[in-house]
Computed example of a mutant assay.
Amino acid sequence: MTSIEGAHVAAIQVVDLVKKYGEVTALSGISFEVARGEVLGLLGPNGSGKTTTVTLLSTLQRPTSGSARICGHDVVTEAARVRETLSLTGQYAALDEGLTAVENLSVFGRLTGLRGPGLRVRIDELVEQFDLAAVRNRRVGALSGGMRRRVDIAGALVTRPEVLFLDEPTTGLDPRSRASVWDTVAGLREAGITVLLTTQYLEEADRLADRIVMLDRGSVVAAGTPGQLKKQAGAAVCEVTLVDRADTTRVVGLLEGLELVESPADGTAAGAQAHPRLVVRAPNGMATVSGVIDRLDSAGIDVVDIGLRQPSLDEVFLQLTETS
């Protein structure tokens, strides 16, 4: 295959992939593609099949049936070629905490056959790319969770893979460390590296992924861009937060004719808030919000806040998994 032809081959192709463990079916014939240079978010709760998918695509296990190709190479019949094109980081950083950041990168390089000046140059490139200069000679065990994960991802890139699998890279990290890893993944996209990101954090997938494949109980329940998936949850909503809880019943009456999505009477978390919140569908966007403001203003109802909100991936996922 020429390089020109190869450029049109998807980085990852999955067709009817099935994996069974005895009587348990972990994957039920999933299919999807990832274009070169794309970040695909593989989204789902624990047990949905995310990690199983990664182990099959990275040749750590064989599928029961179906097929998968990485950069045009079959994961079963061309496993060695597949391993040359990809790298993988698991849910927890695979680092020696007694070694420095640079020493860990050197170990990764030596394990993949790099030696001498070439390895030193590559390590310097990664130190600069991942902003590790300030910690390059510090023991990994003394680094923050986000910085350790950054070193781990840098190690996965020592061999310049075409495809990188990030299996729940922010599991167990605090918000600051998670944000640091998000910046790192955004940098991978800018560098043109194809990334398959598995996560159970919907906010993470929404922020990082060009496209999302949602898994539930081993099956694909939805696929598309974050915007496309959000549209499946219906129209935007208008959220109204009241000053006085005593106004709730009156406001519900004032909003007659609009579809009430949530009110304090639902027994949800909103009902426990100091200021009650009501949510109605906003099929006409800001026009609906303006109409709600007019009704409340005419009735002299005081509000803490009122605004338009688009559906979230959380709502999309809950709707899909409730019916799948």
Rank of each mutant, 00 (worst) to 15 (best):
P169F: 09
Q228M: 01
V158P: 00
R160L: 00
R207V: 07
E204G: 02
V163W: 09
Q228I: 05
L202W: 04
A156W: 08
A191E: 13
V195M: 01
R211G: 09
V181T: 08
V185A: 04
K230N: 11
T184R: 02
S180D: 15
K231E: 15
Q200G: 05
L166C: 03
I193F: 03
S219I: 11
A209C: 15
D183F: 06
V220N: 05
T170N: 06
V181K: 03
E190H: 05
Q200F: 01
P169Q: 00
T199G: 02
D216C: 11
L173C: 02
D206A: 06
S219L: 00
Q232M: 15
V213G: 05
W182M: 03
V195S: 12
F165V: 01
V185E: 11
P161D: 10
T198V: 02
R176V: 15
Q200N: 11
R176P: 01
V220R: 14
D167E: 09
A156N: 00
V213Y: 08
K231H: 14
S180M: 15
W182R: 13
F165C: 06
G187C: 01
E162N: 13
E162F: 05
A186P: 04
T225M: 11
L173R: 03
I212G: 08
A223Q: 14
G187E: 08
D167Y: 05
T171S: 00
V185F: 10
T184L: 03
V158Q: 02
G192F: 12
V220E: 11
E190V: 12
V213W: 13
P161F: 01
L188S: 06
T170A: 02
Y201V: 07
R176Y: 10
A209R: 04
Q200P: 08
D210W: 10
Y201C: 02
L202E: 02
G192N: 14
E190D: 14
G192S: 09
D216N: 13
Q200A: 03
W182C: 07
D183Y: 02
T225L: 01
A205R: 00
P169K: 02
L188P: 08
T199Q: 07
E190Y: 07
V158G: 07
P161C: 10
R178M: 05
D174K: 03
R178L: 13
F165W: 00
F165R: 03
A186C: 08
V163R: 02
S180I: 06
I212M: 10
T184D: 07
L157E: 02
E203C: 14
R176W: 06
T225A: 01
V220D: 13
T170L: 09
M214A: 14
P175N: 10
T171C: 04
S219G: 07
E190T: 14
T225D: 06
G172I: 03
G218Y: 13
V158H: 12
G227Q: 10
S180P: 11
R211S: 08
D167H: 02
A186G: 14
D167S: 06
A186Y: 05
D206S: 03
R207I: 00
V185T: 05
L197F: 10
A156P: 12
P161G: 05
K231S: 14
R176Q: 15
R211I: 08
R160A: 11
A209D: 12
V213S: 00
R207M: 09
L208A: 08
D174R: 15
D174G: 13
E204Q: 12
L229W: 12
M214H: 03
E168N: 04
S219T: 14
